[in-house]
Design a protein around this nucleic acid. Structure first.
Lengths: 330, 330
DNA sequence: TTGTATGCGTTATCAC
DNA sequence: GTGATAACGCATACAA
C-alpha cells in the first residue's frame, strides 16, 4: 500500500505530452473546442493508463455547484415502499449524471453540518422540515422539494379514499378507523384521517369511529385493541369494517379480532394500506392498498428536476397509481 | 430571490477589517496562532452577521480529503433493522464532525460516478462488493469496511445458532429450514444455512431438511409451502420444528401450516429471525430472534473508525446482543 | 493548442 | 505577540 499521490490532470497532460487545458477539453468533450483525433486518442489513452479520475472537490469549486442531490429522510420508518422509492430515485438521478445521497435525520440541527459538507445542488425532503431548516436551505439557495410518501402535496389522498370506497362498495355503512400518534408520522396520519372522514361523508356513511393505537407501532396492545373492537361492534349500531392507517395497524387488528370473538371478514372487514411484504401472510390475508412507487418516484423526480431547470411544475400525480390489492380480509 | 453571491471569507475579512488569514485562524481556533480577544470578537461578529459558511468544496480541495462517510447498500431490503442501523450510525458519525451519506446501489458500475462526486473519506458496505468495486475503492485509497447485517465477518453467526438451540431446548430433534434464493441476500442466506446445519450437528440433531421458498419473498406460494410442510411432517420421522431465514419466511410458514392441517406450535414449532414489526401480530405471535442493532451499529463504527485512524481492530461483536423474543410459535 | 486567471479556504513564512 | 502576504490544491474556460 504505497501512499501514492492522487493522479491529477497534470499527470495525464505530461503523459500525453500536452497541456492540462487540452486534457480538460478532450475529457469533457468541450463543444467549442476542436481537437484533432490523434491528440484526442493520446489523451484518452494516457487517462486510461493512469486511471485518472477528476477531483470532485476541485471540479465543484470551479463549477460553483455540486452534482449531488440530497434526500432528507426526516424519520419515516423504512419499509418496502420507501425502499422502492429510494431505489428508483437513485437510478433516475444517476441517469442525469448526478448522485442521489440519502441523509437520515436524527437531530434536525445537524442539517447545517450536512449541508456544509455536501453542498448539494438540490434537496428532496420526505416528511416535514422545520422553519429553521427551510431557512437554512433557502439561505444556501438549495432548491428543495418537500414530499409525502405517495402523496403529492397538491394531489388528493387517493389511497385513503380508495379504502373507504372499497368498504362502502361492500355495503359497510358504519366504519372504524385505526390511526397512530407517532410524532414523525403526523404528516401522514392527519391528512389520511381527514380524507377518511370526508370520503365517508361524501358516500353518505356515518362518521367513522376513531381509535389511536398509540405512538409506538411495535408496542400496540392487542388486548386493548380487542376491547375497542368489542365496544365498536357491540352497540346498537355496530361497526362492520375497519380502515387502517397502515398494514401494521391492520395486522394488529386482525390479531385482535379473534380475542373479541370476531371473525374476519364475516363479523368485521379490515383493510390496510401500503401492502407490506408480510401482509400477504396474515390470516386471513390482508386486503390493502398498494401504491406504484416506481411511478411516484418518477413523478417526484419530474417535479424536482423541473425546479432545478426552472421549468413549469408538472401536473398532479396520477391517481391511477393506487391499486386495490384484494385478498381475504374484506 | 436575489441571486446574491455566496458569502466568502473575503467578505468576512472586509467586514471585520482584517485579512482572510485572520478570519481563518479565528474560525478554526488555530492553536499555533494567538489572536487577541478583541479581534476574535470582531471576526466572529462579522461571520455571524453575514451568515458565513465555509465552502465545503474549497475546504475539501485544500485539505485533500472530505468529511463524508459513504454507506453503500448493495441491495439489502429495508426493514426495521436496517432503519435502526442507519439511524444510529448517522448519529455516531455526525458526532465526529463527519456526515454519513447513504448510497442505494442499483447498478454496481455507478459506484465510480458516485465516488467521483462524493470523494468519501471512508466507505461502509452492507452486502458484498464485486471485485471491480473493491479495486475502485482501493485505487481511490478509500478505506472500506464490508459488513453483514448483525454479523461481524469474524464473529460466529450467533442468531441462527440461537434459533436452533432454542428449538432443541424444546425437545425438537428433526428440523426443517426455510431459506430464500434472492440473489442480493445470498451473502446472508448462505452462512445462515451453514450455521443452522453445523449447530444441529453439534447438538446431535438430524440434518435439517431445507426448502427454498424462491427468489422473491413477496411472492412465496403459501400452497406450495403447505405441501412441503405436509411432506416434512408426514413421514415416519416427522419434522416438528422449522427455523426460518427471516420473519417473512416464518410468516409464510405460519400461514401455510393450517392448510397442511398443522397447528402451531402443537404440531409444528416455527421460529423467525429479525423481529419485524408485524411479527408481533401473526397468529400465533411469532417467536423470533432480535438483534440489538444499536450496539451493532456502535461496534461497526468502532471498527470503521479504527480503520480510519490506523488503530488496531476492536474485538468481536458481542454475542450478547442477540436475544430470543419468546412469543407463541414455539 | 497553450498560457493563465479563477474559484475559496488554509497555512507556512515573514514583517512589524 | 499580532497579523499580513503568498502559495497551494485541482479543474475549467477565456484569450491569445
Amino acid at each position: 500500500m504505497t501512499p501514492t499521490r492522487r493522479v491529477t490532470s497534470s499527470d495525464v497532460a505530461r503523459e500525453a505530452g500536452v497541456s492540462r487545458a487540452t486534457v480538460s477539453y478532450v475529457l469533457n468533450n468541450t463543444p467549442r473546442q476542436s481537437i484533432p483525433e490523434s491528440t484526442r486518442q493520446r489523451v484518452l489513452a494516457a487517462a486510461q493508463e493512469l486511471n485518472y479520475t477528476p477531483h470532485a472537490a476541485a471540479r465543484a469549486l470551479r463549477a460553483g455547484e455540486s452534482n449531488l442531490v440530497l434526500f432528507i429522510n426526516t424519520g419515516v420508518p423504512y419499509g418496502v415502499n420507501l425502499s422502492v422509492l429510494l431505489d428508483t430515485l437513485t437510478a433516475e438521478v444517476s441517469a442525469t449524471g448526478r448522485s442521489l445521497v440519502i441523509w437520515q435525520q436524527r437531530d434536525p440541527a445537524d442539517l447545517a453540518t450536512t449541508l456544509a459538507h455536501l453542498q448539494p445542488r438540490l434537496a428532496i425532503a420526505l416528511g416535514e422540515l422545520d422553519d429553521t431548516q427551510r431557512a437554512l436551505l433557502a439561505q444556501a439557495r438549495i432548491p428543495t422539494v418537500e414530499t409525502d410518501l405517495g402523496r403529492d402535496p397538491v394531489s388528493p389522498d387517493v389511497g385513503t379514499a380508495l379504502q373507504i370506497q372499497h368498504l362502502a362498495g361492500h355495503g359497510h355503512r358504519r366504519l372504524g378507523y385505526l390511526t397512530t400518534s407517532q410524532p414523525e408520522l403526523e404528516r401522514f396520519t392527519v391528512p389520511r384521517l381527514a380524507t377518511a372522514r370526508s370520503t365517508a361523508l361524501e358516500l353518505g356513511l356515518t362518521r367513522p369511529l376513531v381509535y389511536d393505537v398509540g405512538p409506538h407501532l411495535p408496542e400496540v396492545s392487542v388486548d386493548a385493541l380487542a376491547s375497542v373492537l368489542r365496544d365498536w361492534t357491540g352497540g346498537a349500531e355496530p361497526v362492520t369494517a375497519v380502515a387502517c392507517y397502515n398494514d401494521i395497524c391492520a395486522a394488529a387488528c386482525i390479531a385482535a379480532a379473534p380475542r373479541a370473538g370476531l371473525e374476519i371478514p364475516g363479523d368485521l372487514a379490515v383493510i390496510g394500506m401500503d401492502d407490506e411484504t408480510m401482509s400477504a401472510f396474515t390470516r386471513p390475508a390482508l386486503t390493502t392498498i398498494r401504491l406504484d412507487m416506481i411511478s411516484f418516484a418518477e413523478h417526484l423526480w419530474e417535479r424536482t428536476s423541473a425546479a432545478l431547470e426552472n421549468r413549469p411544475e408538472p401536473g398532479l400525480f396520477s391517481s391511477m397509481s393506487f391499486t386495490l390489492v384484494e385478498r381475504a380480509s374484506v
